[in-house]
Design a protein around this nucleic acid. Structure first.
Length: 865
RNA sequence: GCGAAAGUGGCGGAAUUGGUAGACGCGCAGGACUCAGAAUCCUGUGGGGUAACAGCCGUGGGGGUUCGAUUCCCCCCUUUCGCACCA
């Protein structure tokens, strides 16, 4: 055995061994409790980064821990392999996206293996493989049959120069991220998934996700955005029909003095036609319709509008009120028309002030009488209804339902619920994604590709010009097809699916990745689902996690899974960050570029200016504060990399990178290595044979600490995820064992206890630093492998205190401490507390008001003065 | 603007139910070993104070509840994140 800890040969040895025997391959075993732990699968961008290291280290601790606890652990890994970077690589470097992606996957897989992660590689999947995406297409067809997938025209971000739709994330300050031209709103035919059908259930079931962070639940709740209110019809004056408006404040309807329409509202032009306002309305629409909603209000949310020249009647007051167009009204929400109540809505208030429209107070605060003239801003709080006909005098909170019910009874309205959540637009004008399995026939219209002709594979011979529009349009082989219905000439849909579709059900596929007849083998899914622990970045709090929840429910309704929710518990880990260096003139600098020395301040190598030791920021290429995990592993090994990322911060918080912290983790493993090495004879026949003598008090204390550590580490890992304190406890135990081992007397009398302690450390460390733990276990003479060994258990008897440390306080301040036998009575403790000279000096003859005794912890003597 | 989370030594962080604030690690200081350095080991390390001890101050600021508050309540400040005209 080498006296020095060298990570590399050890890690290579164990990784080879694990791979050779497929140590982490699992199958359904009804005899064992299952545990499904999953980390969000990576995009194969080229190499892993520290965020991956952190994410997968956390997951691997959970997987290895649960395995040692006797669970049948499913811990799979795969690749979220479709997406834009591959296509950009194709455009810039003339590599086919497929080749680029495949190469990246191969490389990153070797990197993951070098981390010693305990994956079942049998279940590996890549979403860009036809065997995977054929099921995207199959699911799409099921959705289509059920009306959950449909095509409609909608406004999208459009870059005129690239001729493509852009995702919201690709629009930067209203301009295209690639060519910087101004993005416009364009109406396009797009495929949608009807996620709104599940809005109510998606909202309601958040309540059963007790194992999710509140932050994520709140974000999803806000995103779904349920509003309860009423729909009211305002009859048009001088035109047929009515304006439907939605409001959450029907109680204020007697204060509605005008109505505002969205710029896109279909009645905008017809209503103004033939009036003096016709031209002004046209200009107003022209001005705003191509601007995205975010930019319409300029910087300060400036309200702008124009009178349409038309009126409608407020059905409650019978009054004719003007109809305006307003830049802040959204067409996609509600009905695109709102009743405006300036006295009780801040936006309407500003609008009314600007255009001198009447303001009528109909809700009065309980204590004061407010007139419209006195209002400096809208009154939006609760109060009592007034000037509201027969409803006057009612509390406005009751008024909401009363007004809605009244309108329904009269036939000009009804209670209504609206959601902010919109249907999910899944069409992308890109190549590197799942082709949408639809064929357009001049005679038959949109025809689904028959299921037995799936997958619709991506053609290989496609040019990547970067000109925009889907490259699939350039492939005649792909485009031209016979109509499945009439056999006539037809063309394929050239849009591909949003890559979020791929990741919406991959966790189901892992349960039966080899299933050839369906996306998932229902029986295997029944055994493994739901995911017991899901781990990933908080940036997916809404998009991915909401889509996956929707898919689970939709697939459940198709009969593919029995669960309502995919992820029982969710851990959102923080970012990995590091300090940055910035020169005011030359921008971000790499630490190794700096000139000068830390103690008299770093300087810029170009201009010699003092460099700010900048803020700690998320690692990114642009800020030049990246640490490549590859370098880290090469220098210290995977165990150190894992131990450091788990020790430096609790998983849900941001982790600040520290070179010295890494050194510290490495130093700990080296010390442990040395200690075991030096005391290998603890496992020799002479030391393991025969019962030792009864240990003395100090050794009994050491034994107690061993068992306490086992308990603490177990509790910290299980459910709490406080890996940092678990590791700290292991270090503390190590320090005690190390000290005891150096004491010849303890070493001689306590061999059995030292051995128990060191073995416990190896077992407790196994989930965190599996290679070194396994190696030490083997080196200390164990025949059975560490990773086949059960998690250590602690004995309640060994935990029990023999002595207690009792803190003595006077008026809440610590004034003394005493060690007493554990079975001592309260009277005896209080008596000896009073007898303590130092304690008494603080009481100093003052009257003792009371004595508080906290069992086994402290005595607080409360004195006067 | 609204919502959420957080603020503890020189630094990362600990204190699980209101009960010894600062575990563990880093850094720093002193010492041992060494021709010397690296590595390693030992000791110390919140502030101020002392010969040493003690008392004193101390968890962003201010107030409150309590025998006792990092922990609970109210107000304020700062930071981070999310949403941002959703009627």
């Amino acid at each position: 055995m080498d006296a020095r800890y060298q990570a590399k040969p050890i890690e290579e040895k164990w990784q080879k061994l694990w791979a050779g025997e497929q140590a982490f391959h699992v199958t359904e075993d009804p005899a064992k409790p299952k545990f499904y732990v999953l980390e969000m699968f990576p995009y194969p961008s080229g190499r892993i980064h520290m965020g991956h290291v952190r994410n997968y280290s956390i997951g691997d601790v959970v997987a290895r821990y649960k395995r040692m606890r006797g669970f049948n652990v499913l811990h799979p890994m795969g690749w979220d392999a479709f997406g834009l970077p591959a296509e950009n690589a194709a455009i810039e470097r003339k590599v086919h996206p497929q080749a680029w992606t495949q190469e990246n996957i191969l490389y990153m897989k070797t990197q993951l293996k070098r981390m010693g992660l305990s994956y079942d590689w049998h279940r590996e999947l890549a979403t860009c493989e036809p065997e995977y995406y054929r099921w995207n297409q199959w699911i799409f067809l099921q959705f289509y049959k059920k009306g959950l997938a449909y095509k409609k025209s909608s406004f999208v971000n459009w870059c005129p120069s690239c001729a493509t739709v852009l995702a919201n994330e690709q629009v930067i300050d209203g301009a295209c991220w690639r060519c910087d031209s101004s993005v416009i709103q364009k109406e396009l035919e797009q495929w949608f998934f009807r996620i709104t059908d599940y809005a109510e259930e998606l909202l309601k079931d958040l309540d059963q996700l007790a194992g999710w962070p509140d932050k994520v639940l709140t974000m999803q709740r806000n995103w779904i955005g349920k509003s309860i209110g009423a729909e009211i019809d305002f009859p048009l004056v001088g035109h047929h029909g009515e304006l439907k408006i939605f409001t959450t404040r029907p109680d204020t309807i007697f204060g509605a003095t005008f109505v505002s329409l969205a710029v896109e509202h279909p009645l905008a032009l017809p209503l103004s036609a033939g009036t003096a306002q016709a031209n002004a309305v046209k200009l107003f629409i022209e001005r705003f319709k191509n601007i995205s909603q975010a930019k319409r209000g300029a910087d300060e949310g400036e309200k702008e509008g124009v009178f349409t020249g038309a009126h409608c009647r407020n059905p409650f007051t019978g009054e004719n009120i003007p109809i305006y167009l307003a830049n802040f009204v959204l067409m996609e929400y509600g009905t695109g028309a709102v009743m405006a109540v300036p006295a009780h809505d801040q936006r309407d208030f500003e609008f009314a002030k600007k255009y001198s429209l009447p303001i009528r107070v109909v809700i009065q605060a309980d204590d004061k009488d407010v007139t419209a003239d006195e209002l400096a801003e809208a009154y939006v709080d609760e109060g009592v209804m007034r000037d509201s006909g027969e409803f006057s005098g009612a509390p406005n909170v009751n008024g909401k339902a009363m007004i809605a019910a009244f309108a329904e009874a009269q036939g000009f309205g009804r209670p209504a619920i609206r959601f902010r959540l919109r249907d999910w637009g899944v069409s992308r004008q890109r190549y590197w994604g799942t082709p949408i399995p639809i064929i357009y026939c001049a005679k038959c219209g949109a025809v689904p590709v028959p299921e037995d002709r799936l997958p619709v594979e991506l053609p290989k011979d496609v040019p990547f010009s970067g000109k925009g529009g889907s490259p699939l349009q350039e492939s005649a082989v792909f485009l031209q097809v016979d109509c499945p219905k009439c056999g006539g000439g037809a063309r394929r849909e050239t849009d591909t699916m949003d890559t979020f579709v791929d990741s919406s059900w991959y966790y189901l596929r892992y349960t039966s990745a080899d299933c050839k007849t369906a996306p998932v083998d229902v029986n295997k899914g029944r055994y493994w689902m739901a995911v017991d622990q899901y781990i990933g970045g908080v940036e997916h709090a809404v998009l991915h996690l909401l889509y996956a929840r929707f898919f689970t429910k939709a697939l459940r309704d198709i009969g593919l899974t029995h669960v309502d929710e995919p992820f029982a518990n969710l851990l959102t880990q923080g970012m990995v960050s590091k300090e940055t260096y910035q020169c005011s003139e030359h921008g971000w600098l790499f630490p190794n570029e700096l000139s000068g020395a830390e103690k008299d301040g770093w300087r810029c190598p170009q201009c010699g200016r003092a460099v700010d030791k900048g803020r700690v920021e998320k690692m990114s290429k642009s800020k030049k504060n990246i640490i490549d995990p590859e370098d880290l592993i090469a220098a210290y090994g995977a165990d150190t990399a894992r131990l450091f990322t788990l020790f430096a911060a609790p998983p849900e918080k941001d982790l600040e990178w520290s070179d010295q912290g890494v050194e510290g983790a490495y130093r700990f493993l080296s010390r442990l290595w040395r200690l075991v090495h030096r005391h290998r004879d603890l496992w020799s026949a002479a030391n393991t044979a025969g019962a030792g003598e009864e240990p003395n008090a100090e050794l009994r204390d050491l034994r107690r600490q061993i068992h306490r550590t086992i308990k603490k580490v177990s509790d910290d890992i299980d459910g709490r995820f406080h890996f940092n304190t678990a590791i700290a406890a292991i270090m503390e135990l190590f320090n005690s064992l190390s000290a005891a081992a150096q004491d010849p007397a303890k070493r001689a009398a306590g061999a059995a206890i030292l051995r128990e302690g060191l073995e416990s450390i190896m077992l407790l460390l196994a989930p965190f630093a599996p290679h070194v733990a396994s190696e030490l276990w083997e080196q200390s003479g164990h025949d059975e492998r560490l990773d086949h060994f059960a998690w250590p258990s602690y004995s309640e008897a060994a935990l029990a205190d023999e002595q207690l440390l009792i803190v003595v306080q006077v008026n809440g301040k610590v004034r003394g401490k005493m060690t007493v036998p554990a079975e001592i009575t309260q009277e005896r403790i209080e008596a000896s507390a009073m007898a303590d000279a130092r304690v008494m000096s603080f009481c100093d003859g003052k009257k003792i008001k009371r004595v508080v005794y906290v069992p086994r912890r402290l005595v607080n003597i409360v004195v006067e003065g």
